[in-house]
Structures are given as structure tokens and as C-alpha cells.
């Protein structure tokens, strides 16, 4: 994990120092390409794994619950934050 995060940092530094290089404006495409290759392999692993395939509907349901939970938690806290610190400030500006 440590080396992975260091790699991420090295990327940020390289990107920042050399940010005027034109090729870096295409780096988003390279990220997508790498992600797609890895997603394909993740798919291959899941497709050849009968245990996961049999439980796909269960996994979908779990994912749904986790997504609702993540949205609910962040939304509730953001509402409290807005009411506590930001409401006056942003509404006065209108």
C-alpha cells in the first residue's frame, strides 16, 4: 500500500512539474484505457468464479443498500453543516 501511494504522489509531482507538456492533456484517456483493461480482467475473474455468479442478485442488493447508506450519511451531515455554518452567509449574498 505504501509504494502504491508513493506512486500516486510521484504522479502528482510529475504532472505538476511538467504540466505544460501537451501529452499530459491526454492522460485522462490513458487512465480510462488502463481502467477498462483492469475492469475487463476483474470481469474475467468474476465470470470464471461460480460462487460470485450464483450470488449476483444478493451482491446487487448489498450494493444497493450500501449506496443508499453512503448517500444518506453524506447528505445528512452536509445538511447539518449547511444549517450550522453556511446558510446565513450564502443567503445574504443573494
Amino acid at each position: 500500500m505504501f509504494y502504491l501511494i508513493m506512486t500516486f504522489f510521484a504522479g502528482i509531482c510529475a504532472g505538476f512539474i511538467r504540466r505544460r507538456i501537451k501529452a499530459f492533456s491526454h492522460v485522462g484517456k490513458a487512465v480510462s484505457l488502463t481502467v477498462f483493461v483492469m475492469l475487463f480482467f476483474l470481469g474475467v475473474e468474476i465470470g470464471s468464479d461460480e460462487h460470485v455468479l450464483e450470488n449476483l442478485s444478493t451482491l446487487g442488493l448489498r450494493a444497493f443498500v450500501l449506496a443508499v447508506a453512503g448517500v444518506a450519511g453524506s447528505v445528512i451531515l452536509s445538511m447539518l453543516l449547511y444549517k450550522a455554518l453556511f446558510r446565513k452567509e450564502t443567503e445574504n449574498r443573494i
Binding site: 509504494y3 502504491l4 501511494i5 506512486t7 500516486f8 504522489f9 510521484a10 504522479g11 502528482i12 509531482c13 510529475a14 504532472g15 505538476f16 512539474i17 511538467r18 504540466r19 507538456i21 499530459f24 492533456s25 492522460v27 485522462g28 490513458a30 487512465v31 488502463t34 481502467v35 483493461v37 483492469m38 480482467f41
Partner: peptide, 16 residues
């Protein structure tokens, strides 16, 4: 691929 990906994501953040 994972290391390449992390490096690329870093570049895209840094070169924004």
C-alpha cells in the same frame, strides 16, 4: 497495471 494506473491518476491530478 495498478501501479501504472495510480501514476497516471496522479499525473492527471497534478497537471490539472
Amino acid at each position: 497495471l495498478l501501479y501504472i494506473l495510480m501514476f497516471l491518476v496522479g499525473i492527471s491530478v497534478g497537471s490539472n
